[in-house]
Every structure is written in structure tokens, then in C-alpha cells.
Design a binder for these strands. Structure first.
Lengths: 184, 184, 184, 184
DNA sequence: CACTAATCGAGACGGTACGTCCGGTCTTGCC
DNA sequence: GGCAAGACCGGACGTACCGTCTCGATTAGTG
């Protein structure tokens, strides 16, 4: 009955927003500029995303693929994969942006849910890996999957965002060995 | 040789900023208001802190005490203390503010240093605890202190800021046990 | 096609500006106050007049009526009218403001045009009076209208703004007699 | 008894102020910059000139020589000299600055006196020329010196500052002839 | 030779206007 | 109803100037 929204605008806006966001950060994304650059009215943007944060989330989410649950048969290898996957995911989004999202989430419950949905899959993958291992080997390995997952993703997050130290494959592997107790 | 800055203004501004910041959050802190409330010219505020973030950091830093390195003789107890201490430190500053600081740090190297100085002491305490234990018991426990510390503070940070789940004493204890391998 | 500017705001702003300007002078006209008084956002004011001077010019121009070309049949009487009319026009705008406009014009060609348009009509009236007289009486009076006009308006301007001495009807009359040579 | 002021500072400040003033105008003259450029404390400047306007006046005055009263024996020639001298005096100071001074004078009586002292000598010279002529030729020429002077300097001022048209020797001569009635 | 009083450099300070920037809402007229 | 265009509100931001002030360090001349 009514005129449908222009789907091309959606795509173009997302693309343009992504570019600005990743290259120049949260503050550099300005609805007014965005609209002008895409050749669209500001109202058209606001009709789709009621708030800057909503747009940002969409951008970020659309850039994140599924988080796979690796299964090589070796728990340590799988967890290392998860850690490195998360590292890549953050890198894809920029250290700055990842932090900005968490900050924004802290004052907007609506956003919090969506931001959590962005990073929790990585933790979920870690949990899945550990639980699957536990399920396979009858003799329980006695690892609390939730705790191990927290330690893993927490350490990754910390090094990337709080400390600022990087995180390479070697560190990831050692981290996993320490967390699972394989080292002992 | 020149007229010295008014130290009272420093204190009054910091105090007023702290109050606003913790009670009403980052956005509520407005230089203009702050100056008026303290009875000082806006320029006087800008002379001390070129940016809101600089002021916020100062406020936060001045509100953080030393991070103690507990020593009960029991590594797990000590690490649990560290975790809970960090939790309190973040709470004292507000979840939102802690996240905002990390975000701001991501785009300002100058700030990054100061923000790191805010949280790294907790990690350092964890490292110290583990290393001390290793030094005492000759039969090496074979724990990589750095890794354990990362897992610990990382998990705390994650639960408080990324996940948004809380963190109580019970969780902290279980986390430590998992990280040090005491569970096994 | 887009939302039109609110014409009422234009009028209200001009009126309020005029009041402030004439009662309290150039410096007292502050965009922020003006906006607040009219109940309009500051941006709305800046959208209309990019600069204080632009606004002032508009105010002044809107307060200046047509400059009539008097025609009593007597050249001296007519010129005296022109001189007194100009005096009133300056008084209506304040000595200070008139001078400030000329000063501002000296560094902004855009403004210069508009300021010139404010005062030149008086000179034009003088020119018209003299030329009309010349056209009527065949026996040429041999007065250069342009020169006479310059002398007239120049003298008026000088006494009002540079010297600061006033200018009454008697002086105006004597001035005209001297300029037209009626005295001789 | 007390330490005397440094005379070199006076000179250096005046020179530097003059340069800025003539090249970039009234607003470009900033005490803070001036002091830094000359290598002097701001207080040193304020000790000499309590206000920006006071300094400006000094600069302008120091750049103006005596206004001579020409005496070639021919009134018209002499008056033309006066007009051209005034033109040069204004040019030496910049059209903008001359206007700005008059504007500033309009809101500061103290300044008004000094600004008047800047330009009135030209008018005085014109008066002197005419009166001297009247005194010489017994058969009174019947010119009101004051009026003639007003017409002359007024016209010059008008063309230079209000109209913006220039003023060359030819115009000056014609102006004088018209004002003295020599044309008739 | 000490004392006194003004000068000087440096820069903090109060006060205030400026013009800009953004987020988000609203209005108008066309499709 | 979607859309382009852009006006509008509200409010923070950081900068700029003016003129005053407070330090501590120099200078003269005076007693």
C-alpha cells in the first residue's frame, strides 16, 4: 500500500558507515556527512537506524561472520583457534571501535544486549570446545568449561584492549595450555 | 618566577569533577558547569586539563589507592583478593567510566599510558603473588605468572565490562582455582 | 521543497536586534542573548546572518526609509532639507553605529557595498536637487552638482562623526549657502 | 629613586604595533602577541598604554607629522595642498584604521579627544589659509572660513572613507574651486 | 652599602563572546 | 507511506581577547 524502502540505500549506507567507522572511528561517523556522502536525505538514515549506536552495531555485526566451533580432535588446538579468531574479529573492527562499543553499551542497556551478542559467540565457542571434549572422554577431564572460557576470552580482550600488548599465535597457544592445565 | 597556579582550585575542581562524574556520569561532566560551580573561569580549567579525558583520568587516578599485594600464605586466597580488589576498583569508578577510559585510550597514545597505569597495577599484583609463591616452594609449581595474571584480570574485566555479568566472591574463588590448577 | 525558514523568526530577530543595538550599542548585541530572548536556537540566527555585521547592516537598512528628493522650488531650502535628513538618519542609528559600520566596511568589500547603499542615497538626493535646478533655469548656474553634493554630505558627516560637533538647522542653512554660492 | 622604564621597549613596541596595525588592522593588534613579538612582558605594555585604544592613538599620532599651513599666495593652491595632505595622512594610516579610530572614539570620550586631535589640524589649516587671505585683501572676499573648511575636509573624508571613491589632484582642485567660488 | 621603590618577565586569572559542531526532531512538497 | 532538502532546538566545545593580578628578580638612586 505504501512505497517500499529503497534497499540500495541500506547497503550503500552500511558500506559508507563501515568505511568511516573503521578508518576514522566512532566520533568521525556523523549522520549528516554520511547522508550527504551517500546522496541520501538524513531522514532516510534515521528512518533505518533511530540512533547512531544502532547503526554502528549493525555495521559491526554485518562485518562479523559466524564464529565457528573448531574441531580438530585436539582441545588445545581448538581453543587456540578460538582465541586467534577472536583476535581477528577485533582487529577487523579496530581496537578503538571495539572499546567504544563496550563503553557505549555501558550506558545503554538496549545496546548492551547487541554488543554482548557481538563478542559472546567467541566465548560460546570456547565453552563448546571444552564441553565437547568432556563429553567425549568419559574419564572427566574435570575442567569447568565456563571458567576456562572466561579466562581465555578475558585474557585475549585484556591484552588487546586494556594492556595494548598484542597477541600472537605463540602467546595464544601458551595461554591455552595454561588455562587447560595441559602444561602440568 | 611567574604567578603560581592556585592549588586550591586544583583540589576544588578535582573534587567537583569527581562528584559529577561518579554521580551522573561522563557526559554530565561539562567544563562550563564545572567552572561555574567551583567559581573559577573556564580558562582556568582548560589550563589544567586540555581535554575532558585528561581531567577524567586525573579524577580516576586520584580516587584509586595503591593496589596491595596480599600475602596470606595461600596463593589462591591472595589471588582471589586481587580479583575482588580489581572488581571494587572498577565499581568505584563505574562500569561505564572504566569502559569509556579504555575507549578513549584507544585513540590517544598519551592517554593510553595513563589508562594503562590505572589497571595494570592489578595485574602486577597477581604476577607478584604467583612469583612469590614460586620462589618460596622450591619444588617449582611450574606456573607461568604472566599467563595466570592475564587469565585472572582478563576474566574479571570480561565479566564486568564485556559480558556484563557480575562477579562475586564465589566466582572469583572458582576462577582462581581454575587458573592455578588447584582444582585438579 | 524543503522546510521553509520561519519568517516570524526573521522579523522577531530583526526587531530584537534593533532594540538592543540602538539602546545599548554594537557591543551589547550578542548572538547568544539575542537567540535566547527571541526564543530561538543560536544556529537559527547564524543561519540567517553569518556575522554580526551582516545582521547589523540588515537592522540599519530596515530602519532607513527612502531618502526623498525635496522640491520646494528653492535650491537652498531643498539642500538644507537633505542635510537635515541625513543628520536625522545618522541620529536614528547612533553616531557610534554609523562609524562602526564604515569601519567594518573598510575591511569587508561585501559589507562595503551594503554600507555604501546606506549613505549614498543622501548624496544622490543632493545631486538630484542641484541638477534639477540647473535643468530648469536655462541661464546655467554653473554648479557642479557632484562637487556640491560631496561638500554637503561630507561636511555633515565630518561634523557629526569626526569632529563630534553637532549640526543644527542654522548651520545646515549656512553650509548650503556657502556651498551653492548664494552668499556671494 | 626607582628603576626607570626601558626606553628601548617603548620604541620597539610602537614600531611593532605600527606594523601590525597598518598591515592587518585594528583587530589584529593583540597585546599578548605584541608583547611576545617584542620580547617583553604583557605588563610592560599595559604599564605604558592602559588600553589598546591608547596605544593605537599613539601609533597613529607618532606617524603623523605636523600639518603645515601652505602659503603660496594663491588661496586655491593652498587649499588644494591641504586636501591632498589630508589624503596622504589618511593613506599613511590606512583607510580601515582611520575609520576604526573614529568608530572607537564614538564610544570613548577620552579617545574622542585624541582622535579629534588627529584630524582637526587639517581642518585648522584650511581655516587658517582662508582667514589669512581674507586678512590680506582688504576688499573682503566674504568667505566663511569655518564653512569652507568643513566642506573641504568633509568632502575629502567622505570620498575616502564613506564612498570609497578615491581622490586625485584633479578632483581636489575642482573641489576647492567649487568651495571657494573661484569657479563662478 | 644597605634600603626603597618602581620596573620587568612570566604567566595565572576572571570574564565573556565567538563561531562551530552534532544529535535528533520536524516540516514541506514531491513521488 | 518513502523520500530529498533543509530548518530547527538544544547544548557542548574549545578558542580568543581584554585587562588585572601575583610572583620573584632586577635595577636605579637615596640615606
Amino acid at each position: 500500500m505504501a512505497r517500499p524502502r529503497n534497499a540500495e540505500s541500506d547497503a550503500a549506507l552500511l558500506a559508507a558507515a563501515a568505511e568511516t567507522l573503521l578508518d576514522h572511528g566512532y566520533d568521525a561517523l556523523v549522520f549528516d556527512d554520511l547522508a550527504r556522502r551517500v546522496g541520501v536525505a538524513k531522514t532516510t538514515v534515521y528512518r533505518r537506524w533511530p540512533t547512531k549506536n544502532h547503526l554502528v552495531i549493525d555495521v559491526v555485526a554485518s562485518g562479523q561472520g559466524e564464529v565457528p566451533v573448531p574441531d580438530t580432535g585436539d582441545v588445545d588446538d581448538d581453543l587456540t583457534s578460538v582465541a586467534l579468531g577472536m583476535t581477528r574479529a577485533i582487529a577487523a573492527v579496530t581496537r578503538r571501535l571495539a572499546a567504544e562499543l563496550v563503553a557505549a553499551a555501558a550506558s545503554d542497556p538496549d545496546l548492551a544486549v547487541r554488543v554482548a551478542g557481538l563478542w559472546s559467540p567467541h566465548r560460546a565457542a570456547a565453552v563448546a570446545v571444552v564441553e565437547r571434549a568432556a563429553a567425549r572422554r568419559r574419564p572427566t577431564v574435570d575442567l569447568d568449561a565456563e571458567l576456562v572460557a572466561d579466562q581465555l576470552v578475558g585474557a585475549v580482550w585484556w591484552r588487546l584492549l586494556v594492556d595494548g600488548d598484542g597477541l600472537d599465535e605463540d602467546y595464544a597457544r601458551r595461554l591455552v595450555r595454561s588455562a587447560t592445565g595441559s602444561a602440568r
